[in-house]
Write a protein that binds this DNA or RNA. Structure first.
Lengths: 168, 168
DNA sequence: TTGGAATGTCAACAAGGCTGACATAAATTG
DNA sequence: CAATTTATGTCAGCCTTGTTGACATTCCAA
């Protein structure tokens, strides 16, 4: 069973051979390194890491989001997230407001300084992604998104699709 | 400059809007979690982590590879890699042989037990990737690969393409 | 023979995951 | 109202995996 491209033996399924799959796996590995390389460099200067980037990204995407919501999206423990949020709040990049509807909740927002860093980070990351998208072309990008969506865990796909299309 | 889809204003470049790029970024983030989820679960049982998986994967792909080569591919320090290799060797999953051509080098191989674990890990990861590939279809997979290749750093692309096509 | 390259090892440290336990405030439920 | 649940924060401690720096060994090559 060197090639388990499904049980059909259909020639149209040659893209499902173990070897093709392995190349897909390594493509993910190497590409993800490129994907994070630029933000990593920027963050290292301030003494931050990827965890800070993730928090900043999703607070920016959903201003006023709660700690619990962030926990679900990031898939880490509250202790781990809290440590990161603590430094971001102490450094004046994130503002935490007591919820109005439910006063147990904390609504999180980026401050001006936080928005500045977010812009710097996402600009670097977007530039690389945009260059890659432009090189690959629109059809490739559509395929890229389709494969990645199929690779997500179900609950992650929920967090992704919730913001997939921007309502005008 | 809310939409910086290139400076052309061309409608055919709508896939390069900041919003489309942001979705691509989040797709990478969520998909990578799915990508590593299954191996992570398996590794956790043995007390290993992703670093062990990476070492095992690339030793399996290139039996007899040297430590230096592995360092270049994995992009970590030798101290970090050495710690992982040490545990794998001590646990009998990896065999380290003094190089014949250059006796300073160490050629790394998986033992039988190492190959068993490699199979278990890659089967889990491949199953998910294969399912995603099958759902998305061959054209999408081609696009997926094209975008990821364009996203890699130059030297990483070298390591990727070196083994991109399998010579028969 | 000497310099440098490849490798290994020791020590120390930090980020960022984790678990478990506990505190507090607020909402919800009986 | 009392009890429980929920949301959050915090302390302590552990693990993996990354980092630097220092130093030893081996051995190829000039």
């Amino acid at each position: 069973m060197a090639k388990s491209a499904g049980s059909t033996g259909n020639e149209t399924l040659l893209f499902l051979t173990d070897d093709q799959i392995r190349k897909g796996i390594e493509a993910m590995f190497f590409a993800y390194r490129g994907f994070t390389a630029d933000p990593d460099r920027i963050l290292a200067v301030q003494g931050y890491g990827r965890a800070h980037h993730r928090a900043i990204h999703f607070i920016n995407r959903s201003p006023g989001t709660t700690v619990n919501n962030l926990l679900a999206i990031l898939g880490v423990t509250k202790q781990s997230l809290n440590r990161v949020l603590r430094t971001l709040i102490d450094d004046g990049l994130v503002r935490s407001e007591v919820g109005t509807r439910d006063r147990r909740e904390r609504n999180l927002y980026l401050t001006e300084a936080g928005a500045d860093l977010e812009r710097e980070l996402s600009t670097a990351q977007r530039d690389r992604m945009r260059t890659a998208f432009r090189q690959a072309g629109p059809e490739a990008v559509a395929g890229f998104r389709r494969v990645l969506e199929a690779m997500m865990d179900g609950d992650m796909r929920r967090h992704y699709t919730r913001f997939k299309e921007t309502e005008p």
